[in-house]
Design a protein around this nucleic acid. Structure first.
Lengths: 297, 297
DNA sequence: AACTTTTATCAGATTTTCTGATATAATTCA
DNA sequence: TGAATTATATCAGAAAATCTGATAAAAGTT
Protein backbone atom coordinates (compact mmCIF):
# COMPACT_ATOMS: atom_id res chain seq x y z
CA UNK A 1 0.00 0.00 0.00
CA UNK A 2 2.71 2.44 0.93
CA UNK A 3 6.33 2.83 0.02
CA UNK A 4 8.50 0.80 2.35
CA UNK A 5 11.88 1.31 3.86
CA UNK A 6 12.99 -1.93 2.24
CA UNK A 7 12.08 -0.71 -1.23
CA UNK A 8 14.08 2.44 -0.70
CA UNK A 9 17.11 0.46 0.39
CA UNK A 10 16.79 -1.81 -2.62
CA UNK A 11 16.40 1.28 -4.80
CA UNK A 12 19.55 2.86 -3.42
CA UNK A 13 21.50 -0.37 -3.87
CA UNK A 14 20.37 -0.69 -7.47
CA UNK A 15 21.30 2.93 -7.97
CA UNK A 16 24.81 2.16 -6.80
CA UNK A 17 25.23 -1.21 -8.53
CA UNK A 18 23.33 -0.69 -11.75
CA UNK A 19 22.56 -4.43 -11.86
CA UNK A 20 19.62 -6.14 -10.20
CA UNK A 21 21.52 -9.41 -10.12
CA UNK A 22 24.41 -7.93 -8.11
CA UNK A 23 22.04 -6.34 -5.64
CA UNK A 24 20.15 -9.61 -5.26
CA UNK A 25 23.38 -11.45 -4.42
CA UNK A 26 24.50 -8.68 -2.11
CA UNK A 27 21.22 -8.65 -0.22
CA UNK A 28 20.74 -12.41 -0.24
CA UNK A 29 17.52 -12.22 -2.24
CA UNK A 30 16.41 -13.51 -5.59
CA UNK A 31 16.73 -11.37 -8.67
CA UNK A 32 12.98 -11.37 -9.12
CA UNK A 33 12.44 -9.95 -5.63
CA UNK A 34 14.65 -6.99 -6.51
CA UNK A 35 13.00 -6.52 -9.87
CA UNK A 36 9.53 -6.55 -8.34
CA UNK A 37 10.53 -4.20 -5.54
CA UNK A 38 11.81 -1.64 -8.03
CA UNK A 39 8.75 -1.99 -10.19
CA UNK A 40 6.50 -1.56 -7.19
CA UNK A 41 8.35 1.55 -6.09
CA UNK A 42 8.06 3.03 -9.57
CA UNK A 43 4.35 2.23 -9.61
CA UNK A 44 3.82 3.88 -6.27
CA UNK A 45 5.75 6.99 -7.25
CA UNK A 46 3.96 7.08 -10.60
CA UNK A 47 7.23 7.67 -12.41
CA UNK A 48 9.88 5.37 -13.81
CA UNK A 49 13.12 5.85 -11.96
CA UNK A 50 15.42 3.91 -14.25
CA UNK A 51 15.97 3.59 -17.95
CA UNK A 52 16.48 -0.06 -18.90
CA UNK A 53 19.43 0.34 -21.21
CA UNK A 54 21.01 -2.83 -22.53
CA UNK A 55 21.42 -5.06 -19.52
CA UNK A 56 21.55 -2.32 -16.96
CA UNK A 57 19.25 -0.06 -15.04
CA UNK A 58 20.48 3.51 -15.13
CA UNK A 59 18.88 6.31 -13.19
CA UNK A 60 16.86 8.61 -15.36
CA UNK A 61 16.14 12.30 -14.87
CA UNK A 62 13.41 11.58 -12.30
CA UNK A 63 15.29 8.85 -10.50
CA UNK A 64 18.27 11.11 -10.02
CA UNK A 65 16.36 13.68 -7.95
CA UNK A 66 14.66 10.96 -5.99
CA UNK A 67 17.99 9.38 -5.17
CA UNK A 68 19.46 12.72 -4.25
CA UNK A 69 16.64 13.54 -1.86
CA UNK A 70 16.03 10.14 -0.34
CA UNK A 71 19.57 8.86 0.06
CA UNK A 72 20.71 11.11 2.92
CA UNK A 73 17.49 10.45 4.84
CA UNK A 74 17.84 6.68 4.64
CA UNK A 75 21.45 6.89 5.70
CA UNK A 76 20.45 9.04 8.63
CA UNK A 77 17.64 6.67 9.65
CA UNK A 78 20.01 3.72 9.55
CA UNK A 79 22.48 5.63 11.67
CA UNK A 80 19.82 6.55 14.20
CA UNK A 81 18.62 2.96 14.45
CA UNK A 82 22.10 1.61 14.90
CA UNK A 83 23.19 4.30 17.30
CA UNK A 84 20.02 3.99 19.31
CA UNK A 85 20.44 0.28 19.82
CA UNK A 86 23.87 0.63 21.39
CA UNK A 87 23.57 3.84 23.30
CA UNK A 88 22.56 3.17 26.86
CA UNK A 89 23.64 6.67 27.89
CA UNK A 90 21.42 8.67 25.61
CA UNK A 91 18.02 10.00 26.42
CA UNK A 92 15.82 12.88 27.49
CA UNK A 93 14.98 12.67 31.17
CA UNK A 94 12.21 14.79 32.59
CA UNK A 95 12.67 15.70 36.21
CA UNK A 96 10.30 17.54 38.46
CA UNK A 97 11.28 19.08 41.76
CA UNK A 98 9.55 21.18 44.34
CA UNK A 99 10.66 24.69 45.05
CA UNK A 100 13.40 24.35 47.65
CA UNK A 101 15.00 21.47 45.82
CA UNK A 102 14.80 23.17 42.43
CA UNK A 103 16.41 26.31 43.75
CA UNK A 104 19.03 25.03 46.15
CA UNK A 105 19.86 21.41 45.31
CA UNK A 106 19.20 20.65 41.67
CA UNK A 107 21.27 23.19 39.72
CA UNK A 108 24.72 21.86 40.64
CA UNK A 109 23.50 18.25 40.41
CA UNK A 110 22.06 18.62 36.92
CA UNK A 111 25.14 20.50 35.84
CA UNK A 112 27.43 17.80 37.16
CA UNK A 113 25.27 15.02 35.72
CA UNK A 114 25.26 16.55 32.27
CA UNK A 115 29.02 16.75 32.31
CA UNK A 116 29.18 13.03 33.02
CA UNK A 117 26.45 12.07 30.55
CA UNK A 118 26.81 14.45 27.63
CA UNK A 119 24.18 12.64 25.53
CA UNK A 120 21.43 12.96 28.07
CA UNK A 121 19.25 16.04 28.11
CA UNK A 122 17.54 16.85 31.36
CA UNK A 123 14.30 18.81 31.44
CA UNK A 124 13.67 20.29 34.85
CA UNK A 125 10.16 21.22 35.93
CA UNK A 126 9.27 23.16 39.00
CA UNK A 127 6.10 22.80 41.00
CA UNK A 128 4.87 22.32 44.52
CA UNK A 129 4.71 18.82 45.99
CA UNK A 130 1.17 18.25 44.78
CA UNK A 131 2.02 19.30 41.22
CA UNK A 132 5.05 17.03 41.10
CA UNK A 133 3.06 14.05 42.37
CA UNK A 134 0.46 14.63 39.67
CA UNK A 135 3.13 14.87 36.96
CA UNK A 136 4.57 11.53 38.09
CA UNK A 137 1.12 9.95 38.08
CA UNK A 138 0.52 11.21 34.52
CA UNK A 139 3.89 10.02 33.34
CA UNK A 140 4.72 13.59 32.35
CA UNK A 141 7.95 13.39 34.30
CA UNK A 142 10.16 10.37 34.89
CA UNK A 143 11.16 11.22 38.41
CA UNK A 144 10.26 13.80 41.04
CA UNK A 145 12.03 15.26 44.05
CA UNK A 146 9.78 16.61 46.75
CA UNK A 147 9.88 17.97 50.27
CA UNK A 148 6.42 16.93 51.35
CA UNK A 149 4.70 13.67 52.13
CA UNK A 150 2.98 11.43 49.62
CA UNK A 151 0.82 8.43 50.04
CA UNK A 152 -0.35 7.05 46.79
CA UNK A 153 -0.42 3.39 45.73
CA UNK A 154 0.82 4.37 42.27
CA UNK A 155 3.90 6.06 43.54
CA UNK A 156 7.16 4.61 44.68
CA UNK A 157 9.04 6.84 47.07
CA UNK A 158 12.53 6.80 48.46
CA UNK A 159 13.86 9.00 51.25
CA UNK A 160 16.99 10.69 50.05
CA UNK A 161 17.90 12.93 52.97
CA UNK A 162 16.69 15.12 55.81
CA UNK A 163 16.01 18.81 55.71
CA UNK A 164 15.50 21.12 58.65
CA UNK A 165 13.27 24.16 58.75
CA UNK A 166 14.66 27.06 60.74
CA UNK A 167 13.16 30.31 61.96
CA UNK A 168 15.04 33.28 60.52
CA UNK A 169 14.86 37.05 60.67
CA UNK A 170 17.12 40.06 60.32
CA UNK A 171 15.99 41.49 63.63
CA UNK A 172 19.16 41.45 65.78
CA UNK A 173 17.08 41.56 68.92
CA UNK A 174 16.12 37.95 68.27
CA UNK A 175 19.69 36.68 68.36
CA UNK A 176 18.93 34.77 71.55
CA UNK A 177 17.10 31.75 72.88
CA UNK A 178 13.31 32.08 72.74
CA UNK A 179 10.16 29.98 72.92
CA UNK A 180 8.01 29.71 69.84
CA UNK A 181 4.87 31.15 71.52
CA UNK A 182 6.68 34.44 72.14
CA UNK A 183 6.98 34.85 68.39
CA UNK A 184 3.47 33.98 67.27
CA UNK A 185 2.24 37.59 67.04
CA UNK A 186 5.21 38.92 65.13
CA UNK A 187 4.84 39.42 61.43
CA UNK A 188 5.43 36.15 59.63
CA UNK A 189 6.15 35.78 55.94
CA UNK A 190 5.32 32.31 54.62
CA UNK A 191 5.12 30.50 51.33
CA UNK A 192 1.72 30.26 49.60
CA UNK A 193 -0.82 27.58 50.39
CA UNK A 194 0.05 24.20 48.85
CA UNK A 195 3.72 24.63 49.57
CA UNK A 196 5.39 21.74 51.39
CA UNK A 197 7.53 24.06 53.51
CA UNK A 198 4.49 25.95 54.74
CA UNK A 199 2.49 22.79 55.46
CA UNK A 200 5.28 21.17 57.42
CA UNK A 201 5.86 24.32 59.50
CA UNK A 202 2.20 24.96 60.27
CA UNK A 203 1.63 21.33 61.04
CA UNK A 204 4.63 21.24 63.36
CA UNK A 205 3.67 24.30 65.39
CA UNK A 206 -0.09 23.70 65.54
CA UNK A 207 0.27 22.02 68.96
CA UNK A 208 2.63 24.68 70.27
CA UNK A 209 0.73 27.87 69.41
CA UNK A 210 -2.98 28.60 69.00
CA UNK A 211 -2.52 30.94 66.08
CA UNK A 212 0.16 32.63 64.02
CA UNK A 213 0.19 36.07 62.44
CA UNK A 214 0.68 35.48 58.72
CA UNK A 215 1.52 38.90 57.41
CA UNK A 216 2.48 38.01 53.84
CA UNK A 217 2.41 34.95 51.55
CA UNK A 218 4.87 34.61 48.72
CA UNK A 219 5.50 32.05 45.99
CA UNK A 220 9.26 31.97 46.14
CA UNK A 221 11.77 31.49 48.87
CA UNK A 222 14.05 34.10 47.36
CA UNK A 223 11.31 36.74 47.67
CA UNK A 224 10.79 35.78 51.28
CA UNK A 225 14.49 36.25 51.97
CA UNK A 226 14.44 39.70 50.35
CA UNK A 227 11.54 40.74 52.56
CA UNK A 228 13.20 39.35 55.66
CA UNK A 229 16.36 41.33 55.00
CA UNK A 230 14.54 44.65 54.57
CA UNK A 231 11.98 44.32 57.38
CA UNK A 232 11.87 42.75 60.82
CA UNK A 233 9.54 39.94 59.77
CA UNK A 234 10.16 36.27 60.53
CA UNK A 235 9.89 33.17 58.46
CA UNK A 236 10.47 29.47 58.79
CA UNK A 237 12.23 28.04 55.78
CA UNK A 238 14.72 25.41 54.81
CA UNK A 239 18.15 25.60 56.38
CA UNK A 240 19.59 25.03 52.93
CA UNK A 241 17.84 28.07 51.56
CA UNK A 242 19.31 30.46 54.09
CA UNK A 243 22.70 28.84 54.52
CA UNK A 244 24.66 31.64 52.86
CA UNK A 245 22.73 34.53 54.41
CA UNK A 246 23.14 33.07 57.90
CA UNK A 247 26.87 32.55 57.33
CA UNK A 248 27.23 36.15 56.09
CA UNK A 249 25.26 37.48 59.04
CA UNK A 250 22.58 38.94 56.77
CA UNK A 251 19.99 36.76 58.47
CA UNK A 252 19.86 35.42 61.97
CA UNK A 253 18.80 31.89 62.84
CA UNK A 254 16.52 32.33 65.82
CA UNK A 255 17.37 29.83 68.56
CA UNK A 256 13.84 28.58 69.30
CA UNK A 257 13.75 26.18 72.22
CA UNK A 258 12.31 22.70 71.62
CA UNK A 259 12.01 23.49 67.95
CA UNK A 260 13.18 20.71 65.71
CA UNK A 261 11.19 20.90 62.51
CA UNK A 262 12.60 18.23 60.24
CA UNK A 263 11.30 16.76 57.05
CA UNK A 264 12.39 14.27 54.46
CA UNK A 265 13.39 14.89 50.90
CA UNK A 266 11.77 12.21 48.76
CA UNK A 267 12.51 10.90 45.36
CA UNK A 268 9.37 9.56 43.66
CA UNK A 269 8.55 7.71 40.47
CA UNK A 270 5.62 5.78 39.07
CA UNK A 271 5.29 2.13 40.05
CA UNK A 272 4.84 1.21 36.35
CA UNK A 273 7.94 3.07 35.30
CA UNK A 274 10.32 0.86 33.39
CA UNK A 275 13.68 1.17 35.09
CA UNK A 276 16.00 1.49 32.12
CA UNK A 277 19.73 1.46 32.58
CA UNK A 278 19.77 5.18 31.84
CA UNK A 279 17.08 5.84 34.43
CA UNK A 280 18.81 3.78 37.09
CA UNK A 281 22.09 5.52 36.52
CA UNK A 282 20.42 8.90 36.76
CA UNK A 283 18.70 7.98 40.00
CA UNK A 284 21.88 6.58 41.47
CA UNK A 285 23.91 9.61 40.52
CA UNK A 286 21.33 12.07 41.79
CA UNK A 287 20.84 10.35 45.12
CA UNK A 288 24.57 10.35 45.76
CA UNK A 289 24.88 14.01 44.84
CA UNK A 290 21.97 15.08 47.03
CA UNK A 291 23.41 13.21 50.00
CA UNK A 292 26.74 14.96 49.55
CA UNK A 293 25.05 18.35 49.13
CA UNK A 294 23.09 17.89 52.33
CA UNK A 295 26.18 16.77 54.20
CA UNK A 296 27.88 20.05 53.37
CA UNK A 297 25.31 22.09 55.25
CA UNK B 1 13.62 -8.49 10.28
CA UNK B 2 14.19 -4.76 9.97
CA UNK B 3 12.42 -1.72 11.27
CA UNK B 4 9.75 -0.63 8.85
CA UNK B 5 8.45 2.73 7.77
CA UNK B 6 5.02 1.62 8.91
CA UNK B 7 6.19 0.93 12.45
CA UNK B 8 7.74 4.37 12.66
CA UNK B 9 4.53 5.99 11.52
CA UNK B 10 2.54 4.00 14.05
CA UNK B 11 5.10 4.94 16.70
CA UNK B 12 4.78 8.64 15.90
CA UNK B 13 1.01 8.44 15.98
CA UNK B 14 1.02 6.70 19.34
CA UNK B 15 3.45 9.32 20.54
CA UNK B 16 0.99 12.01 19.60
CA UNK B 17 -2.19 10.25 20.75
CA UNK B 18 -1.02 8.40 23.83
CA UNK B 19 -3.67 5.74 23.23
CA UNK B 20 -3.32 2.69 21.01
CA UNK B 21 -7.07 2.56 20.55
CA UNK B 22 -7.26 6.06 19.11
CA UNK B 23 -4.40 5.40 16.74
CA UNK B 24 -6.03 2.15 15.62
CA UNK B 25 -9.25 3.98 14.78
CA UNK B 26 -7.38 6.80 13.12
CA UNK B 27 -5.36 4.45 10.94
CA UNK B 28 -8.17 2.01 10.26
CA UNK B 29 -6.43 -0.90 11.94
CA UNK B 30 -7.19 -3.10 14.88
CA UNK B 31 -5.88 -2.23 18.30
CA UNK B 32 -3.83 -5.41 18.38
CA UNK B 33 -2.04 -4.48 15.17
CA UNK B 34 -0.91 -1.23 16.77
CA UNK B 35 0.08 -2.93 19.98
CA UNK B 36 2.14 -5.54 18.14
CA UNK B 37 3.78 -2.97 15.90
CA UNK B 38 4.95 -0.98 18.91
CA UNK B 39 6.16 -4.07 20.69
CA UNK B 40 8.05 -5.18 17.61
CA UNK B 41 9.70 -1.79 17.24
CA UNK B 42 10.75 -1.84 20.88
CA UNK B 43 12.16 -5.35 20.45
CA UNK B 44 14.14 -4.31 17.40
CA UNK B 45 15.53 -1.22 19.07
CA UNK B 46 16.29 -3.23 22.20
CA UNK B 47 14.79 -0.52 24.40
CA UNK B 48 11.30 0.18 25.63
CA UNK B 49 10.06 3.44 24.19
CA UNK B 50 6.97 3.89 26.32
CA UNK B 51 6.05 3.52 29.94
CA UNK B 52 2.66 1.81 30.29
CA UNK B 53 1.15 4.05 32.90
CA UNK B 54 -2.48 3.42 33.79
CA UNK B 55 -4.27 3.09 30.49
CA UNK B 56 -1.85 5.13 28.49
CA UNK B 57 1.48 4.78 26.77
CA UNK B 58 3.72 7.71 27.59
CA UNK B 59 7.12 8.22 26.02
CA UNK B 60 9.95 7.41 28.36
CA UNK B 61 13.44 8.89 28.44
CA UNK B 62 14.61 6.70 25.54
CA UNK B 63 11.46 7.09 23.47
CA UNK B 64 11.71 10.85 23.69
CA UNK B 65 15.09 11.01 21.93
CA UNK B 66 13.98 8.48 19.37
CA UNK B 67 10.89 10.52 18.61
CA UNK B 68 12.91 13.70 18.41
CA UNK B 69 15.37 12.23 15.94
CA UNK B 70 13.05 10.16 13.81
CA UNK B 71 10.06 12.45 13.53
CA UNK B 72 11.56 15.10 11.22
CA UNK B 73 12.98 12.42 8.93
CA UNK B 74 9.67 10.65 8.51
CA UNK B 75 7.91 13.93 7.84
CA UNK B 76 10.51 14.77 5.23
CA UNK B 77 10.22 11.35 3.58
CA UNK B 78 6.46 11.70 3.37
CA UNK B 79 6.86 15.13 1.85
CA UNK B 80 9.33 13.86 -0.72
CA UNK B 81 7.06 10.98 -1.68
CA UNK B 82 4.04 13.21 -2.05
CA UNK B 83 5.88 15.96 -3.85
CA UNK B 84 7.60 13.53 -6.16
CA UNK B 85 4.33 11.98 -7.26
CA UNK B 86 2.86 15.26 -8.40
CA UNK B 87 5.83 17.05 -9.78
CA UNK B 88 6.17 16.47 -13.46
CA UNK B 89 8.55 19.40 -13.78
CA UNK B 90 11.23 18.26 -11.40
CA UNK B 91 14.31 16.32 -12.29
CA UNK B 92 18.00 16.25 -13.02
CA UNK B 93 18.66 16.08 -16.75
CA UNK B 94 22.10 15.18 -18.00
CA UNK B 95 22.93 16.70 -21.35
CA UNK B 96 26.01 16.15 -23.45
CA UNK B 97 27.03 18.38 -26.31
CA UNK B 98 29.97 18.57 -28.64
CA UNK B 99 32.28 21.55 -28.58
CA UNK B 100 30.70 24.08 -30.93
CA UNK B 101 27.25 23.46 -29.50
CA UNK B 102 28.44 23.61 -25.91
CA UNK B 103 30.20 26.91 -26.47
CA UNK B 104 27.89 28.78 -28.78
CA UNK B 105 24.40 27.32 -28.55
CA UNK B 106 23.82 25.71 -25.18
CA UNK B 107 24.54 28.45 -22.65
CA UNK B 108 21.60 30.73 -23.46
CA UNK B 109 19.32 27.73 -23.99
CA UNK B 110 20.10 26.14 -20.64
CA UNK B 111 19.80 29.49 -18.95
CA UNK B 112 16.43 30.16 -20.53
CA UNK B 113 15.23 26.61 -19.82
CA UNK B 114 16.16 26.82 -16.17
CA UNK B 115 14.22 30.05 -15.82
CA UNK B 116 11.15 28.28 -17.17
CA UNK B 117 11.65 25.09 -15.17
CA UNK B 118 13.15 26.16 -11.84
CA UNK B 119 12.93 22.66 -10.36
CA UNK B 120 14.99 21.02 -13.06
CA UNK B 121 18.75 20.89 -12.74
CA UNK B 122 20.69 20.49 -15.96
CA UNK B 123 24.12 18.89 -15.98
CA UNK B 124 26.02 19.78 -19.12
CA UNK B 125 28.87 17.60 -20.33
CA UNK B 126 31.25 18.46 -23.11
CA UNK B 127 32.93 16.01 -25.42
CA UNK B 128 33.55 15.34 -29.07
CA UNK B 129 30.89 13.58 -31.11
CA UNK B 130 32.30 10.12 -30.37
CA UNK B 131 32.35 10.78 -26.61
CA UNK B 132 28.78 12.02 -26.60
CA UNK B 133 27.55 9.00 -28.57
CA UNK B 134 29.22 6.68 -26.07
CA UNK B 135 27.67 8.53 -23.12
CA UNK B 136 24.21 8.12 -24.66
CA UNK B 137 24.85 4.41 -25.28
CA UNK B 138 25.88 3.98 -21.62
CA UNK B 139 22.89 5.90 -20.37
CA UNK B 140 25.29 8.34 -18.68
CA UNK B 141 23.48 11.24 -20.33
CA UNK B 142 19.83 11.52 -21.23
CA UNK B 143 20.30 13.43 -24.44
CA UNK B 144 23.18 14.56 -26.63
CA UNK B 145 23.69 17.32 -29.17
CA UNK B 146 26.33 16.71 -31.78
CA UNK B 147 27.71 18.16 -34.99
CA UNK B 148 28.90 14.94 -36.58
CA UNK B 149 27.24 11.90 -38.05
CA UNK B 150 26.13 8.79 -36.13
CA UNK B 151 24.93 5.47 -37.30
CA UNK B 152 24.14 3.14 -34.46
CA UNK B 153 21.06 0.94 -34.07
CA UNK B 154 20.83 1.86 -30.39
CA UNK B 155 20.62 5.55 -31.05
CA UNK B 156 17.71 7.65 -32.13
CA UNK B 157 18.74 10.84 -33.90
CA UNK B 158 16.88 13.92 -34.95
CA UNK B 159 18.19 16.70 -37.17
CA UNK B 160 17.69 19.98 -35.38
CA UNK B 161 19.31 22.47 -37.76
CA UNK B 162 22.04 23.18 -40.23
CA UNK B 163 25.42 24.66 -39.52
CA UNK B 164 27.82 26.13 -42.03
CA UNK B 165 31.60 26.10 -41.83
CA UNK B 166 33.26 29.23 -43.13
CA UNK B 167 36.84 30.14 -43.90
CA UNK B 168 37.99 33.05 -41.73
CA UNK B 169 41.14 35.11 -41.23
CA UNK B 170 42.17 38.54 -40.07
CA UNK B 171 44.26 39.13 -43.21
CA UNK B 172 42.50 42.05 -44.96
CA UNK B 173 44.10 41.07 -48.26
CA UNK B 174 41.73 38.10 -48.36
CA UNK B 175 38.59 40.25 -48.28
CA UNK B 176 37.77 39.18 -51.83
CA UNK B 177 36.53 36.25 -53.89
CA UNK B 178 39.07 33.39 -54.11
CA UNK B 179 39.25 29.71 -55.00
CA UNK B 180 40.06 27.24 -52.26
CA UNK B 181 43.21 25.90 -54.00
CA UNK B 182 44.83 29.36 -53.84
CA UNK B 183 44.66 29.09 -50.03
CA UNK B 184 45.96 25.57 -49.47
CA UNK B 185 49.53 26.61 -48.77
CA UNK B 186 48.71 29.36 -46.34
CA UNK B 187 49.02 28.61 -42.64
CA UNK B 188 45.86 26.86 -41.39
CA UNK B 189 44.87 26.51 -37.78
CA UNK B 190 42.47 23.61 -37.22
CA UNK B 191 40.85 21.77 -34.34
CA UNK B 192 42.52 18.58 -33.07
CA UNK B 193 41.96 15.18 -34.60
CA UNK B 194 38.62 13.63 -33.59
CA UNK B 195 36.82 16.96 -33.81
CA UNK B 196 33.67 16.98 -35.91
CA UNK B 197 34.44 20.42 -37.33
CA UNK B 198 37.88 19.33 -38.53
CA UNK B 199 36.58 16.07 -40.02
CA UNK B 200 33.79 17.75 -41.92
CA UNK B 201 36.15 20.41 -43.32
CA UNK B 202 38.92 18.04 -44.38
CA UNK B 203 36.39 15.63 -45.86
CA UNK B 204 34.74 18.44 -47.80
CA UNK B 205 37.93 19.79 -49.35
CA UNK B 206 39.67 16.50 -50.03
CA UNK B 207 38.40 16.47 -53.64
CA UNK B 208 39.24 20.15 -54.17
CA UNK B 209 42.86 20.28 -52.98
CA UNK B 210 45.60 17.68 -52.83
CA UNK B 211 46.97 18.81 -49.51
CA UNK B 212 46.56 21.51 -46.91
CA UNK B 213 49.18 23.21 -44.75
CA UNK B 214 48.12 22.52 -41.18
CA UNK B 215 50.24 24.89 -39.16
CA UNK B 216 48.66 24.42 -35.73
CA UNK B 217 46.07 22.19 -34.06
CA UNK B 218 44.11 23.38 -31.06
CA UNK B 219 41.47 21.89 -28.81
CA UNK B 220 39.18 24.85 -28.54
CA UNK B 221 37.55 27.14 -31.02
CA UNK B 222 38.16 30.16 -28.82
CA UNK B 223 41.94 29.52 -28.93
CA UNK B 224 41.76 29.28 -32.70
CA UNK B 225 40.00 32.63 -32.89
CA UNK B 226 42.66 34.24 -30.68
CA UNK B 227 45.41 32.96 -32.97
CA UNK B 228 43.57 34.12 -36.08
CA UNK B 229 43.22 37.62 -34.72
CA UNK B 230 46.91 38.00 -33.91
CA UNK B 231 48.39 36.31 -37.00
CA UNK B 232 47.44 35.99 -40.64
CA UNK B 233 46.52 32.33 -40.40
CA UNK B 234 43.29 30.88 -41.74
CA UNK B 235 40.79 28.48 -40.29
CA UNK B 236 37.52 26.91 -41.22
CA UNK B 237 35.09 26.88 -38.35
CA UNK B 238 31.41 27.20 -37.61
CA UNK B 239 29.70 30.36 -38.74
CA UNK B 240 28.10 30.54 -35.34
CA UNK B 241 31.46 30.57 -33.60
CA UNK B 242 32.71 33.62 -35.49
CA UNK B 243 29.46 35.49 -35.84
CA UNK B 244 30.40 38.34 -33.49
CA UNK B 245 33.99 38.72 -34.71
CA UNK B 246 32.85 38.91 -38.34
CA UNK B 247 30.19 41.48 -37.46
CA UNK B 248 32.76 43.58 -35.57
CA UNK B 249 35.25 43.34 -38.42
CA UNK B 250 37.79 41.57 -36.23
CA UNK B 251 37.71 38.59 -38.57
CA UNK B 252 36.96 38.40 -42.24
CA UNK B 253 34.84 35.73 -43.85
CA UNK B 254 36.80 34.74 -46.96
CA UNK B 255 34.51 34.52 -49.96
CA UNK B 256 35.65 31.14 -51.29
CA UNK B 257 34.02 30.27 -54.61
CA UNK B 258 32.04 27.03 -54.79
CA UNK B 259 32.56 26.50 -51.06
CA UNK B 260 29.43 25.40 -49.24
CA UNK B 261 30.51 23.31 -46.33
CA UNK B 262 27.34 22.45 -44.42
CA UNK B 263 26.60 19.97 -41.72
CA UNK B 264 23.72 18.99 -39.51
CA UNK B 265 23.27 19.48 -35.81
CA UNK B 266 21.77 16.31 -34.35
CA UNK B 267 19.96 15.59 -31.18
CA UNK B 268 20.45 11.98 -30.04
CA UNK B 269 19.08 9.74 -27.32
CA UNK B 270 18.97 6.05 -26.55
CA UNK B 271 16.26 3.97 -28.21
CA UNK B 272 15.38 2.45 -24.79
CA UNK B 273 15.08 5.83 -23.13
CA UNK B 274 11.73 6.25 -21.44
CA UNK B 275 10.28 9.49 -22.73
CA UNK B 276 8.97 11.06 -19.56
CA UNK B 277 6.91 14.19 -19.64
CA UNK B 278 9.87 16.09 -18.27
CA UNK B 279 12.18 14.68 -20.94
CA UNK B 280 9.77 15.45 -23.76
CA UNK B 281 9.30 19.00 -22.56
CA UNK B 282 13.04 19.49 -22.36
CA UNK B 283 13.56 18.15 -25.86
CA UNK B 284 10.73 20.25 -27.27
CA UNK B 285 12.02 23.39 -25.59
CA UNK B 286 15.60 22.83 -26.65
CA UNK B 287 14.78 22.09 -30.26
CA UNK B 288 12.73 25.26 -30.53
CA UNK B 289 15.47 27.33 -28.93
CA UNK B 290 18.20 25.90 -31.17
CA UNK B 291 16.13 26.60 -34.26
CA UNK B 292 15.62 30.19 -33.20
CA UNK B 293 19.31 30.60 -32.35
CA UNK B 294 20.35 29.31 -35.75
CA UNK B 295 17.82 31.56 -37.47
CA UNK B 296 19.43 34.61 -35.90
CA UNK B 297 22.73 33.97 -37.63
C1' DA C 1 -19.35 -5.33 42.84
C1' DA C 2 -20.48 -4.80 38.10
C1' DC C 3 -19.31 -2.31 34.14
C1' DT C 4 -16.20 0.15 31.17
C1' DT C 5 -11.97 1.14 29.10
C1' DT C 6 -7.61 0.14 27.65
C1' DT C 7 -3.46 -2.72 26.56
C1' DA C 8 -1.41 -7.47 25.77
C1' DT C 9 -1.40 -11.79 23.61
C1' DC C 10 -2.81 -15.69 20.83
C1' DA C 11 -4.30 -18.38 16.79
C1' DG C 12 -5.67 -18.04 12.44
C1' DA C 13 -6.76 -15.08 8.20
C1' DT C 14 -4.99 -11.94 5.05
C1' DT C 15 -1.63 -9.54 2.66
C1' DT C 16 2.88 -8.82 1.26
C1' DT C 17 7.12 -10.35 -0.11
C1' DC C 18 10.04 -13.67 -1.91
C1' DT C 19 11.44 -17.86 -4.67
C1' DG C 20 12.06 -20.76 -8.63
C1' DA C 21 10.83 -21.36 -13.18
C1' DT C 22 10.27 -19.41 -17.47
C1' DA C 23 10.11 -15.69 -21.05
C1' DT C 24 12.50 -12.15 -23.42
C1' DA C 25 16.16 -9.70 -25.22
C1' DA C 26 20.81 -8.52 -26.06
C1' DT C 27 25.61 -9.60 -26.05
C1' DT C 28 29.54 -12.72 -26.58
C1' DC C 29 31.78 -16.53 -28.45
C1' DA C 30 32.79 -20.29 -31.52
C1' DT D 1 25.47 -17.16 -38.29
C1' DG D 2 23.89 -19.74 -34.46
C1' DA D 3 24.70 -21.35 -29.64
C1' DA D 4 25.83 -19.97 -25.18
C1' DT D 5 25.78 -16.49 -21.82
C1' DT D 6 23.96 -12.83 -19.18
C1' DA D 7 20.65 -9.77 -17.86
C1' DT D 8 15.76 -8.19 -16.64
C1' DA D 9 10.58 -9.19 -16.45
C1' DT D 10 6.82 -11.85 -15.10
C1' DC D 11 4.14 -15.59 -13.18
C1' DA D 12 2.35 -18.93 -9.81
C1' DG D 13 2.96 -20.65 -5.59
C1' DA D 14 5.71 -20.66 -1.02
C1' DA D 15 7.10 -18.16 2.89
C1' DA D 16 6.95 -14.40 5.87
C1' DA D 17 4.95 -10.47 7.78
C1' DT D 18 1.05 -8.14 9.21
C1' DC D 19 -3.48 -7.79 10.65
C1' DT D 20 -7.99 -9.38 12.79
C1' DG D 21 -11.07 -11.04 16.25
C1' DA D 22 -11.33 -13.14 20.49
C1' DT D 23 -9.84 -13.25 25.01
C1' DA D 24 -7.11 -12.05 29.16
C1' DA D 25 -5.49 -8.76 32.41
C1' DA D 26 -5.53 -4.58 34.86
C1' DA D 27 -7.27 -0.31 36.32
C1' DG D 28 -10.80 3.17 36.57
C1' DT D 29 -15.87 4.33 36.96
C1' DT D 30 -20.50 3.92 38.43
Amino acid sequence: MDITFRQLEIFLNVTREGHLTNVAKQMGLSQSAISMAIKDLEDKLEHLLFDRINKRLVLNEKGRVFEKEVSPLIKRLNDIEHEFRNSANKGIIRVGASTTIVDYLMPPIICNYMNNYPDVRVHLKEGNTKDIVQLVKDGAIDVGFIEGLVNDPEIIKEAIGFDELVVVTSDVLLDKEVYIDTLQDRRWVLREEGSGTRDVFLNYIKDKVDHINIFLELGHTESIKSILMSTQCLSCISKIAVKNEVADGKLIKVRVKNFECKREFLMIYHKDKYLSELFNKFVYFTKAMIASQIDKI
